[in-house]
Design a protein around this nucleic acid. Structure first.
Lengths: 205, 205
DNA sequence: ACATATACGGAACAATGTTCCGTTTTTCAA
DNA sequence: TTGAAAAACGGAACATTGTTCCGTATATGT
């Protein structure tokens, strides 16, 4: 059993073994299950519940995500990516002004859904410290491109920082939990109107 | 409700036995210990740690606070009370405008310190649902009295709702965690300047 | 001083995050 | 195709922490 090296081992820096198919399958199942469970039971849902829903053992969960927070982070990043990727898609399908407001609505939904996660984010757990920077890294460019396009088209004024807009919406979404879902939408629309105000030659024509 | 006639038992509505001295002592010790532990380790600190710091057994903690959240709530209410009670004290010691801005600073400190608690508040646990109303019930009148006095003195404009101001500061305090403690202070000062703007005959003289 | 209500302390229980390791499955080369 | 090793799996076992229970200790009032 001592495998006395006949020839060195086939690892070196050449490509190692492929990722096992079952491992990949379980990883996908876990992410899907976690997303569903977090959405219904919140981010405090037991790991066992996610494992069961994914049809895998607990050990498998911890093989892929050494800590519970790693699973949360993975889901979060995935949803941030989805939101960011929506920007170019909307830009391709709509006029600049329409694309901008649709994306803002999309972003608002994301923020509202991530309510429970926000609590974890601010829990002080250092595991989550990387999330805000990822959030910014992905979403700021996404929004900025929409803003620039809208400004170039003359439907909003230029010079407004995407960062500030993202933060403002995130903050505004918080009270909308208690004040009804309409509140957040109205506030976002108001912000957009504010941007439109100083835009082209005149608001009315 | 008639609860049987006569005076069978010595309870009725006459005062029952005095609260035992040790019970009161332990209650006080627990509140003090909890406040200290929450401040250093956050609201997720283990109950055992608080019990130890207070010098009592775990059973005693649960006698006074049947659930962990009850202890958190008790500490929260106590600190809300302290903040609310600061209003009349400041009003007595300072001119209306000065009292107002000092209290706002005091309130900002309270909000900033209660960061971890805010996460628990929005965790969805129904145990905490009563806190926002208590918060409003105590702090809105406290701030309103300061606002009214300042408006009467002509140093701020009238008609601004205390509720909105409280909410705005609470929301503004959140980003100040990352942007440094100065940020929150500046934002509050800005809000107050906003109030002063439409106040008397003119800002400058 | 004594009887009793009250409160205390901590062992025991339950839920949940995490680790460990024997077993199973996949991959790769002969 | 076959066999061995690498990789992954599953879940029992462990650690931590909220909560319950109950025998013991103590304050209160007569």
């Amino acid at each position: 059993m001592d495998d006395t090296a006949g020839e060195i081992r086939p690892e070196d820096d050449g490509q190692r073994r492929r990722v096992r198919a079952d491992a990949q399958r379980n990883l996908d199942a876990l992410l899907r299950a976690a997303m569903a469970v977090f959405a219904t039971s919140g981010v405090d849902a037991p790991v066992r519940e996610i494992a069961e829903k994914a049809g895998v053992g607990i050990g498998t969960v911890y093989r892929h995500f050494p800590q519970r927070s790693d699973l949360i982070i993975a889901v979060f990043r995935q949803e941030v990516d989805a939101c960011a990727d929506a920007a170019p898609a909307l830009a391709a399908a709509h006029a600049p002004g329409e694309a901008l407001s649709r994306w803002m609505r999309r972003y608002l939904d994301f923020i509202a859904a991530k309510r429970g996660l926000a609590a974890a984010l601010h829990s002080g757990d250092p595991a989550y410290e990387i999330l805000p920077s990822y959030f910014q890294k992905r979403l700021v460019p996404a929004l900025q491109s929409l803003l620039d396009a809208a400004a170039a088209a003359g439907v909003v004024r230029a010079g407004f920082a995407a960062t500030d807009l993202l933060r403002a919406v995130a903050v505004l979404a918080a009270p909308s939990q208690e004040l009804g879902p309409e509140h957040g939408r109205r506030m976002v629309d108001l912000l957009l109107d504010g941007l439109r105000y100083g835009a082209g030659p005149s608001p009315g024509g």
